[in-house]
Amino acid sequence: MTGLIQVRGGRTVAKAVDRPWLLRAASIALVLGLWEWGGTIPVSIAFPKFSETLAAFAGMITDGTFAGAYAETAGPLIVGVSLTAVGGVLAGLVMGLSSRTEWLGLPVFIVLQASPSAAIIPLITFIYGIGFTAKVFAVVLLSAPVIVLNSYRGIANTPRSLLEMGDAFLAGRFKRIVKIVIPAGSGLIFAGLRLGLAQGFTGAVLAELLITPTGVGDLITFYRSVADYPRMFASILSIILVASVSVTLLQRLEQRLFRPEMRPA
């Protein structure tokens, strides 16, 4: 702690930079401290203290509330992200290899990525109703643009030198794709899948909040309606934690799997 305060000493600054976890922990402690303070004032009757939220969080883990809710949310999320992973990577591949398909498909995904998804999700019910399919579609709607566009960029930006090397070795089209193009784009494709999972999770929760209240979306709706604000905040906190932890783990996996030059900037 003193090392952080004595910023004039070059060694202490270096020490803090060398230990980024210390800064991260300080940042988290600051936010949680402000939260506790905000709940003590209180900011609003509906704003619980961090300690109350933490107690509710622990209670929801031990009584199985979270397990049941996340099991329900996981269904459409897994199906939706799996479908998009296969279809999205294929679409990106085709778009990256063919300029006609690129012109046909690229604008759709760029527009989709820029559009406000919360406004589109209620429209899904008109076509897919209110069941499982609608929620899967919400996941696909949110995760597809990032998966497709990342895959497309990974494929389209294959280094020219590698392609020329393939030509030199008289590689056929199929071999060029399998042995050069896909491996060269794999870093960006994986990054797309990682971000797609995060977007898909957002889609699943939005669908639960806006279409039918199930899973973790139902926890938020229900605890808000019965004014159990610590549990409502604990539900929201759980979403943030699940998203952060899963994306961080995937990022670590990405760093382990791919060479530095293949990782997205």
Binding site: I45, A46, V226, A227
Partner: peptide, 9 residues
């Protein structure tokens, strides 16, 4: 009702 009971609003 829940708000009045739960939070003494």
């Amino acid at each position: 009702y829940a708000l009045i009971e739960g939070s003494d609003a």
